[in-house]
């Protein structure tokens, strides 16, 4: 194939394209990666994956669906309670409490889906080989890590917040049917929305740290499930005060103390719970950042 005819008929001659490097006259005026450029790159990477968009959409669907189901269940429950005159008053009060938490009732699934998304966004860099391209473009590595963390956390927060709000909009007329009031503008509703959205963003950050540390999708998601779903149950089943006490410090048990209107017995104080969740995010993220910087890609 090295005959002159083959070369001259080759449709991809490099010469013409290189003869006019118009875009690169001012090489010095166009430096390399800034944080905002890297962030822009991570946003392009994020939105150009169909699987990511599907996970975000399923989060919204599940959240809104559970909000509606929960509103309906709460209504049925209150209905049944009012027919029993003895327990009526007490149940009605509880029904009111349940109503306010209807929009956030799907949060366990949101944390699972978006936490897994956090794992996948980093682990897939390594499993597909994309990491070599990413860290060749940003050899200092940490800006790319930070940019991805920002994208993961902001998206998780936004998707959760919007889903909770829409779930609330759907729950209000259903609850209204049963004569229950849900005021989405109340401070307790706003607090639930904010705390739960921050919590899911935190879980996504933990997921991303696990994905960075393990570089393996299945391993990262299993670890996440272990921390958020298996450990709480296991700690409850193991007899002894140590595990009963330790259970309070699991990240999944930090939301209720912060979000509840009053202190819930057998949980941490709100400020303690906030700090514990913060530690659950900061420690794995720092560890992941340090190891990402040191390890071979």
């Amino acid at each position: 194939m090295s005959s002159p005819t083959a070369e001259s008929t080759s449709p991809h001659e490099p010469a013409p394209s290189f003869s006019a490097p118009v875009h690169f006259g001012g090489r010095r005026s166009q430096p390399g990666p800034t944080f905002f450029r890297v962030l822009n790159s991570e946003i392009i990477k994020f939105r150009s994956l169909l699987s990511t968009l599907i996970l975000l959409a399923s989060t919204a669907v599940v959240m809104v669906g559970f909000g509606a189901l929960s509103a309906w269940g709460t209504g049925q429950f209150t209905d049944a309670a009012t027919r029993d005159p003895q327990a009526g008053g007490r149940m009605a009060a509880q029904g009111g409490d349940l109503a306010v938490s209807a929009p956030t009732s799907g949060i366990a699934f949101a944390q699972l889906i978006l936490g897994s998304l956090g794992v996948l966004l980093m682990s897939s860099e390594f499993t597909t080989g994309m990491a070599r391209s990413t860290f060749a473009a940003v050899p200092k590595r940490l800006p790319a890590f930070a940019a991805k963390l920002v994208v993961v956390m902001v998206t998780s927060f936004a998707v959760t917040a919007v889903s909770i709000w829409v779930a609330g909009m759907v729950a209000v007329p259903i609850l209204d049917n049963y004569g229950l009031k849900l005021d989405l503008g109340s401070s307790q509703s706003a607090k639930l929305l904010l705390v739960n959205s921050i919590y899911v963003a935190a879980v996504a950050a933990i997921g991303m740290a696990l994905g960075t540390l393990l570089r393996n999708s299945a391993g990262g998601i299993m670890s996440l499930v272990g921390i958020f779903f298996v450990a709480p149950i296991a700690f409850q089943l193991i007899p002894g005060d140590f595990f009963k006490e330790a259970r309070k410090y699991l990240p999944g048990n930090t939301v209720d103390p912060v979000a509840a209107a009053q202190h819930v017995p057998d949980t941490l104080e709100a400020w303690q719970a906030g700090l514990v969740l913060g530690a659950w995010v900061v420690i794995p993220v720092l560890l992941a950042a340090v190891l990402l910087k040191r390890r071979d890609v």
Partner: peptide, 15 residues
């Protein structure tokens, strides 16, 4: 060294 689910264009655009 490419994410398998991303299009070639988006890969280059992100880089």
């Amino acid at each position: 060294a490419v994410h398998t689910s991303r299009s070639a264009y988006n890969h280059l655009l992100a880089m």
